[in-house]
Design a binder for these strands. Structure first.
Length: 715
DNA sequence: GGGCCTCGAGATCA
DNA sequence: CTCGAGGCCC
């Protein structure tokens, strides 16, 4: 049972014999050094053997969970190494176990761009969807039974760890999947993360990115909270939040006192030999052999019936597991099959998370508020008597719209069942009818917008009621500005909703374009706004004046145009003016743009007010990073191997002209540039390659031959 | 939606 | 020192 079967046991036996032989060298070096303390070679030898022994003990303790010596003995070895390094500072290496805790706190975390985006998994909650998933894949792959690698879904934080030439160099959070935060110094304090890949030098990859989850074990969480209580500091509500909080500490000293654990579940980009290409379970065994902890529960099963058996088994053992989980993950085991299946938007088609059902509790519905959204939609929100469910205290939940309230027959004063599963937004499931009080009152959707008093209208074939005030409605105005400044839009730091409230209410700004006309005096006059905050905001506005076309399109807040559509529009049209001129028919030629989205876009640009704002934005100095060379091409359906990648061509190709190759790469979403840099993803080398080839070797950029390029293009 | 950390502002106190 | 805002995580 389990893909790690026997591995741990064999490793342990092997390590113990390794320790035995190391022990002899250790004693010899100690003795020799005593006789000859100034011998540099002996100093180095001793520190190296100590490091090796300590790392082995560390591995046995934190990864295999089977220490072979008492803590006190480990501490003695550690102290010996510390003293030695202290006396001879040149002996210290970045991957020495003594260097897990960094000395100085950071000012702030810096951003890291993931070489391969960190994708998310689509979630399923019921058996039928899992069976449908298996059936769908079976049809696509034309096979009867699919083999899956299965694993528990940790309730922690996803991170990516980079190893360059075997040494841990950078660790980052998932972020939005594209870029995350550099939390290396905190991750170094996590004992189960190897600072150095465990296997010998021979087949060590030059670059390896290991992905997995940071979490806090239930026991460690309890201990931490006991400690916090004793110190009269605040306690954490659940292990996940404790882990997240610890990882975001700027001071690694504090992070080190919070016991975090890592489990690997996959790899990202890698360079070098030896990485299995056949199955995911072999990849897992491979990373385990490098010293990464893998969940004991990882396994391989076949067909949907076995998936469900696995699910049940894990669900039954959930309480006994040392960590919190919120479901299980199924991944197609064969890597060839994975590649065949590919990706849909930001999620692989070959894997899903099967989540445990959400926890449910009963609470009281105290009232129903009405909120006005960015597009003027009035949303009723249930105000609930606070109740702890699914790891958090729930106080409100959306009721979506009028019809939903009718359908669920919700009245103010009712007792309702509320559901929440980890990351899922709380939801009112149903009313407990037996408990309905006599004074329960009906909710009536307001006839006027609660924010601006304009008439609230419901279109004949729509489920929602809208404020008819448009951008004259302060709520919509504010939301439009907040959306404009949001991270996925113009990414203006320091501009949150409260500040926008103030700015709009004091009539300092009316549209996003007005933001760029703010000055320090104006800002300082606002309450709770000092010199520092003001200059931070102005700096942030200035810094982000050159958005990509996609960011800008998204930031405009065109109804029905989200990040993905914005990106697709930018890719297809390449320039803002081309998008602006497009008509409904033309727009619908784009993948995933139907009549509704197309009409929305055309309507948006037909609105005089919007055009004024856009003009004004350009006049205050917004410059777009456009790609006007782009042809209006059909999307190649997320060719993830090429999309967003940069190629450089060198030498003569036999089947393709340079021009053809360039065009085909660009049609698949890639970019072709002239010279090789660290940002280049692939160099395509034909016959008689030029200096670019050597440059690629030097920088370690992947080199493709013509056949490999054609294969990439095929997908 | 809710929980966490960090930062800056403003209050409080010496 | 306390508090609110903002950013980031699921």
């Amino acid at each position: 049972m389990g893909i790690l079967e026997n591995i741990s046991k064999n490793t342990r036996t092997e390590l113990i014999s390794k320790l035995k032989s190391s022990q002899e060298s250790l004693e010899k070096f100690r003795k020799d050094l005593k006789k000859n303390p100034s011998n540099v070679q002996l100093q180095t030898d001793l520190s190296e053997i100590l490091r090796k022994i300590i790392e082995i003990h560390n591995y046995m303790y934190s990864v295999l969970d089977a220490p072979s010596i008492p803590d006190s003995e480990y501490d003695r070895l550690f102290l010996e190494l510390q003293r030695l390094e202290h006396r001879y500072p040149h002996l210290v290496t970045s991957h020495s176990p003594t260097q897990r805790v960094g000395a100085t706190p950071l000012i702030k975390f810096s951003q890291v761009t993931h070489r391969l985006p960190m994708l998310s998994l689509s979630n399923e909650f019921d058996m039928a969807s899992v069976e449908a998933f298996d059936r769908r894949l079976g049809e696509k792959l034309k096979v009867d039974k699919i083999e899956y690698e299965v694993e528990p879904k940790f309730d922690g934080l996803a991170v990516s760890l980079c190893y360059e030439n075997g040494i841990f160099t950078t660790g980052a959070t998932r972020g939005d999947g594209e870029t995350g935060e550099d939390v290396t110094s905190n991750l170094r304090t996590v004992k189960s993360i190897p600072l150095c890949l465990r296997t010998g030098i021979n087949n060590r990859p030059t670059y390896l990115e290991v992905r997995g989850e940071i979490l806090m074990l239930k026991d460690d969480f309890k201990k931490l909270n006991q400690y916090q209580r004793k110190k009269n500091e605040k306690v954490f509500v659940n292990p996940r939040n404790a882990a997240a909080g610890s990882l975001r500490q700027l001071d690694p000293q504090i992070a080190a006192t919070r016991r975090l654990t890592f489990f690997a579940y996959g790899i990202g980009e890698y360079k070098g030999e030896g990485i299995p290409h056949d199955t995911h379970s072999n990849v897992m065994r491979y990373i385990a052999s490098y010293g990464f902890p893998i969940a004991k529960e990882c396994d391989v099963v076949c067909g949907s019936a076995e998936l469900l058996i696995y699910y049940k088994k894990i669900q039954d053992s959930r309480e006994q597991l040392p960590y919190d989980i919120d479901g299980v993950v199924y991944k197609v085991n064969s890597i060839a099959q994975q590649e065949k299946l590919g990706f849909i938007s930001r999620a692989p088609r070959f894997a899903i998370a099967h989540k445990f059902p959400a926890q449910e509790v009963i609470t009281e519905l105290l009232g129903i508020d009405v909120q006005v959204g960015r597009t003027g939609v009035l949303t009723p929100v249930a105000k609930l008597k606070p109740v702890f469910v699914g790891g958090a205290t729930v106080t409100q939940a959306t009721l979506h719209n009028e019809d939903e309230i009718k359908r669920k027959n919700v009245m103010i004063g009712d007792s309702v069942i509320v559901r929440r599963a980890g990351d899922v937004i709380p939801e009112v499931v149903e009313v407990v009818m037996e408990r309905r009080p006599d004074n329960a009152s009906q909710f009536i959707m307001p006839y006027w917008c609660p924010e601006c008093g304009a008439k609230a209208v419901r279109m004949p074939n729509e489920a929602v009621v809208r404020c008819s005030g448009g951008l004259l409605c302060p709520a919509q105005k504010k939301q439009a500005i907040i959306h404009f400044a949001s991270r996925r839009g113009m990414d203006i730091e320091g501009l949150g909703d409260k500040l926008v409230d103030q700015l709009v209410d004091t009539a300092s700004i009316r549209t996003p374009a007005d933001l760029y006309l703010l000055d320090e005096d104006k800002l300082i006059s606002l309450p709770r706004m000092g010199k520092k905050s003001a200059s931070n905001l102005l700096e942030s506005l200035r810094k982000r004046k050159k958005p990509t076309l996609a960011q800008f399109i998204y930031a405009l807040g065109i109804p029905n145009v989200g990040v993905i559509t914005a990106r697709e529009l930018a890719r297809y049209y390449g320039s803002f003016s081309r998008l602006q001129e497009a008509d409904v028919e033309a727009l619908q030629k784009i993948q995933d743009v139907g009549l509704i989205v197309a009409q929305s876009i055309v309507d948006f640009f037909a609105e005089r007010h919007n055009i004024d704002i856009i003009k004004k934005l350009f006049s205050v100095g917004i410059e777009l990073k456009e790609n006007i060379d782009v042809q209006q091409t059909q999307s190649s359906d997320n060719n993830n191997l090429i999309t967003g990648k940069t190629f450089v061509l060198t030498g003569t190709l036999s089947n393709l002209s340079r021009e053809d190759a360039k065009e085909r790469i660009e049609n698949s979403g890639g970019k072709v540039t002239g010279s090789v840099s660290i940002k280049t993803n692939f160099v395509v080398a034909g016959v008689d390659p030029g200096g670019k080839y050597n440059k690629a070797l030097e920088l370690g950029v992947d080199i493709l031959n013509e056949a490999e390029l054609l294969e990439l293009l095929q997908h």
